[in-house]
Design a protein around this nucleic acid. Structure first.
Length: 832
RNA sequence: GCGGGCGUGGCGGAAUGGUAGACGCGCCAGCCUUAGGAGCUGGUAGGGUUCUCCCUGUGGAGGUUCAAAUCCUCUCGCCCGCACCA
């Protein structure tokens, strides 16, 4: 028998799959009318080509591959494409460091990843491969930007953003790590800059509503998105500035506490601040305060524990419910981005307002009374009372329960045109412009005469120009390329300048799953009918770190495309599976910690099959697991065991051995049953629960059992027939996990293409054992175990239990209370 | 602070109301071998023991049930997300 040499087998079959284009899937001839019931779009999040694949990727792509191969063998038409999220800061930073052009780096890295995925034997339709940095791809990313612009969903506005003074560039929120720049750790500042945004807030309600369309998204991910969107119900209440006659709306979730408002706050960025103080004695102090808070990093301002600061404006606001005049202050704990940038402050019932009032000596007035807190408790209060209670100091609403009073007060305000019920979201519009090089240029032109003009669709793509120096300087590096910047206005033909910002890479990855369906289309981003045929994705798999950003942006994009009638569905991913991370030596693998386990090394040492099998065997795929160097040895040994077992069977049990297992007994039939039971177990574990670890251990059991009886079974023709059957079952069941060794063994078993073979079905006749071990308990404690016939009824089981001498020992002389019989499991005799 | 998750042998884990610890790692023993870091077989929660049983045991305490790792209440520890969002 030859030795198991993974390298030889794996290259052999990878070549076959490539030459025969085994996993390519053509579009249906008439996609509009095609039957979609058998199609299955299996998708793993596309990799960012920052170098080579790490273990997390291997887990991701192996899981996807197991699902794809399993479904394919169960009759599905599998759509399983791959691409690269190839634009991005990471590559650009490496480029700056190494002097290698980002395009060249990307070419090298995508090449590596392509090679690694081939070496892992992942069943991908390579004919649909794409890279988001390819002009043929980003042309359509730009196209969508224009479509968004057309619909008013892309707009430019001045906004406070995170600024890294050392890198001289803006950073996305997610690129700010603990108040510092992710690249150089320099504390970030806040700057106000004109930026492009996508109006995702318009879709907040639908993003929330459509969770109900999602079939099996992890609760955790939905909760995270729900929190991120942060929907709050409340009221908008209009306060009038005394003496100036200006109306200022505020948003509050506590209209029930309106009578307790004792001051009024504006965010430092609020446009009204200047109007209120201009020409007054408060002017300078307030301006200084505004300036200093603008300099504070956004992250710092968001610290809940910070001491409250503020400045009085000298003006008063009129509380619409009681006509009371309350002082208007400016404070940086009020955020311009949320609600209206102005709030009514109710110190008795809001901890933040309470701290502010105490610091500046402002009245604390109780309007909701409860345990230990009454109408007169305000001055002595030690903390805000945020519990439920009855209204006091609230005029005609006194005595009402506060949870009813909110609606009543809102209704009253509505009648007086002083307010209305309102909903507010924590979600902000999506900042998509970046002053960096390696991204898709925003297809906009600025003309002195015509203003902001979109590039005509026919002129796309706006190619990313080559520049000498793409180090960040505060402006996009392409701004220095005169040839690029200077252009003509598409409307008037006069001189104009191009937008030089590029798009956030999350834009690129918000629609790639659609492009896969029609990746070479050069007339439109994709054909509507073809996309509608393959989409939505039936199973999406990726890391939980994308729970909010990528997954929410992709959902948003899909909804916009639906509104444009470009697709017929509103959610892109019907089912989502988030995999756990792989730790090593108690920590996340990272280059800086030096605890990286390189997949290539393990493919080299043990082969791809062993690596795939081990990664899935480690534990439930959704949980974080710890990589164990010795663990992988175990799976390698197992595959060696399989190899030797099957080859021995091929040798000693010829293909023409007896078939049909009727009338067999003893160990022989036990193995037949075990094989059939394993078919059921593996099928269920893989299809219903993605429990690959238990599926693999079931196959291990079958292999172990077979080892124990094989020498006996080789002696008879019937036994040899059973071993053949067992060998084929093992190979078929193991195939999705370890496809190379199984393809090889299948061929050696005298067949051809295992991946085209139907998934095995269990034979009902050989599923149930003839006898089983019945547990007999007395008062819930196991006292005996009896072999009983599977066919035995409740009475038989009870009789057998009573007849046991061991049981009699515990029941003797006691009074029988109850007897519980669970056929197939146990008998429990309760005595007193 | 709010929200979510997790806690089972030396280790990864299995069991989702019915035999706790499947399967694998590690370890121990036997066989085979010139040798083995190969292969095959057996053992391996803790304690007791008359060697066949007995007791204890799923972070801790209580409860429901004939029966709880599993359901409920409280509590401790760890991890993740959000966090001045009015």
């Amino acid at each position: 028998m030859d030795k198991y040499i993974p390298a030889d087998i794996e290259t052999k079959w990878q070549r076959v799959w490539e030459e025969e284009r085994s996993f390519e899937v053509p579009d249906p001839e008439t996609p509009g009318g095609a039957d979609r019931s058998e199609k299955s779009y299996v998708l793993e999040m596309l990799p960012y080509p920052s170098g080579t694949l790490h273990m997390g990727h291997v887990k991701n792509y192996t899981m996807g591959d197991v699902i794809a191969r399993f479904r394919a063998r169960n009759g599905a038409i599998i759509f399983h494409p791959m691409g690269y999220d190839a634009f991005g800061l990471n590559t650009e930073n490496v480029a700056i460091k190494t002097g290698i052009h980002p395009a060249e780096l990307t070419r090298i890295n995508t090449g590596n990843i392509n090679r690694q995925l081939h070496r892992l034997g992942v069943s991908i339709d390579w004919s649909r491969e794409l890279a988001t940095c390819d002009p043929e791809y980003y042309r359509w990313t730009q196209y969508f930007f224009l479509k968004f612009f057309e619909r008013g969903l892309a707009y430019k506005k001045e906004a406070p953003v995170n600024w890294c003074p050392s890198c001289a560039t803006v950073l996305a929120n997610e690129q700010v790590v603990q108040g510092g720049c992710e690249r150089c750790s320099t504390p970030v500042e806040t700057r106000s800059l004109a930026q492009w945004f996508f109006r995702i807030t318009d879709y907040a309600e639908r993003l929330l509503d459509d969770f109900k369309q999602l079939e099996s998204w992890p609760e955790r991910v939905i909760t995270m998105q729900r929190n991120w969107i942060g929907r709050s119900e409340g009221a908008e209440v209009i306060f009038r500035v005394d003496g100036l006659g200006i109306d200022v709306p505020v948003f509050t979730t506590r209209p029930d506490t309106l009578f307790g408002a004792t001051f009024f706050l504006l965010a430092p960025e609020h446009e009204l601040v200047e109007t209120l103080v201009a020409g007054t004695e408060y002017e300078n102090k307030v301006r200084d305060y505004v300036t200093s808070s603008r300099l504070k990093p956004l992250v710092d301002r968001a610290m809940a524990e910070r001491e409250k600061t503020g400045e009085f404006t000298g003006r008063y606001a009129v509380n619409p419910v009681n006509g009371e005049k309350i002082p208007i202050w400016v404070s940086d704990y009020v955020l311009m981005e949320y609600g209206t940038g102005a709030i009514m402050a109710v110190p008795a019932h809001d901890q933040r307002d309470f701290e502010f009032a105490r610091k500046f000596g402002i009245e604390v007035r109780v309007v909701v009374s409860g345990e230990g807190v009454g109408a007169e408790s305000g001055p002595g209060l030690e903390a805000a009372f945020e519990e439920e209670g009855a209204l006091v100091n609230s005029g005609r609403f006194d005595g009402m329960l506060n949870r009813d009073a909110g609606a009543a007060i809102t209704e009253w305000l509505n009648g007086e045109s002083l307010g209305r019920a309102a909903v507010s979201y924590r979600l902000r519009d999506w900042l998509v412009s970046r002053q960096r090089y390696w991204g898709a240029p925003i297809p906009i032109v600025y003309c002195d005469k015509c203003g902001t003009v979109p590039v005509p669709v026919d002129d796309l793509p706006v190619l990313l120009p080559d520049v000498e120096d793409y180090a960040p300087k505060g402006k996009s590096p392409i701004a220095t390329n005169e040839e690029f910047v200077n252009t003509v206005c598409p409307v008037c033909g006069g001189p104009a300048k191009r937008e030089t910002d590029t798009m956030d890479t999350f834009v690129d990855s918000s629609w790639y799953f659609l492009r896969y369906t029609d990746p070479r289309n050069d007339r439109e981003p994709f054909d509507r009918a073809i996309a509608n045929y393959w989409m939505p994705v039936d199973q999406y798999i990726g890391g939980v770190e994308h729970a909010i950003l990528h997954l929410m942006y992709a959902r948003f994009f899909t909804k916009v495309l639906y509104d444009m009638d470009l697709v017929a569905f509103e959610e892109p991913f019907n089912n989502l599976f988030t995999q756990g991370m792989i730790y090593y030596q108690g920590a996340k693998m990272s280059k800086s910690k030096g605890n990286v386990v390189n997949p290539d090394d393990h493919v080299e040492n043990y082969g791809a099959d062993t690596l795939r099998l081990y990664i899935l065997f480690m534990g439930p795929p959704e949980l974080d697991v710890e990589w164990q160097d010795q663990g992988i040895e175990g799976t390698f040994r197992f595959l060696g065991r399989v190899w030797r077992l099957i080859n021995e069977i091929i040798e000693k049990a010829p293909a023409d051995s007896a078939a049909g297992f009727e009338g067999l007994g003893g160990d022989i039939i036990k193995i037949v049953r075990k094989a059939n039971q394993t078919i059921v177990k593996v099928s269920g574990d893989v299809s219903e629960r993605f429990r690959f670890n238990t599926a693999i251990s079931a196959v291990m059991e079958l292999v172990n059992d077979t080892y124990l009886v094989k020498d006996e079974l080789f002696q008879s023709d019937a036994g040899r027939g059973v071993l053949r059957f067992t060998a084929e079952t093992v190979v078929k069941l193991l195939d999705p996990f370890a496809p190379h060794i199984c393809a090889e063994l299948w061929e050696r078993l005298g067949h051809r293409r295992l991946w085209q073979e139907p998934w095995p079905r269990a034979d009902e006749r050989f599923l149930e054992d003839e006898t089983y071990e019945l547990v007999v308990q007395v008062n819930g404690k196991v006292r005996d175990r009896l072999q009983v016939a599977s066919s035995a009824g409740k009475e038989d089981l009870l009789a057998a239990a009573r007849a046991s001498g061991k049981i009699a020992k515990y029941t003797g002389g006691k009074q029988l209370v109850k007897e519980i019989v669970v056929p197939g499991r146990l008998v429990n005799i309760v005595v007193k």
